[in-house]
Simulated scan of single mutants.
Amino acid sequence: MSLQDLQTQLLALSPAEKTQAIQLLIESLSDTWTGIEKTLGVCGGDARITNTRIPVWVLVRAKQLGNTDAQILTNYPTITATDLSNAWRYAEAHLGEIEQAIAENEAA
Rank of each mutant, 00 (worst) to 15 (best):
M1I: 10
Q4T: 14
D5K: 06
Q7I: 07
L10E: 06
L10H: 04
L10D: 06
L11Q: 11
S14L: 11
S14G: 08
E17C: 07
T19E: 15
Q20M: 11
Q20W: 08
Q23M: 07
L24Q: 10
I26Y: 11
E27K: 13
E27D: 11
S28Y: 04
L29S: 12
W33T: 00
G35Q: 08
G35N: 08
I36Q: 00
E37S: 12
E37R: 06
E37V: 10
G41M: 10
V42G: 08
G45H: 10
G45W: 13
D46V: 06
D46E: 15
I49Q: 00
N51R: 05
T52C: 02
R53S: 11
V56K: 00
V56L: 09
W57K: 03
V60N: 01
V60T: 05
R61N: 15
R61T: 09
G66Q: 09
N67A: 15
T68C: 06
T68E: 12
D69C: 10
T74H: 08
N75A: 13
N75F: 08
Y76C: 05
Y76N: 09
Y76S: 02
T78I: 09
L84T: 01
S85A: 11
A87K: 00
W88Y: 11
W88G: 03
W88K: 02
Y90F: 14
H94A: 05
G96P: 03
E97V: 03
E97A: 02
E99T: 04
A101H: 12
I102N: 01
I102Q: 02
A103I: 05
E106T: 14
E106V: 13
A107S: 15
A107G: 14
A108M: 10
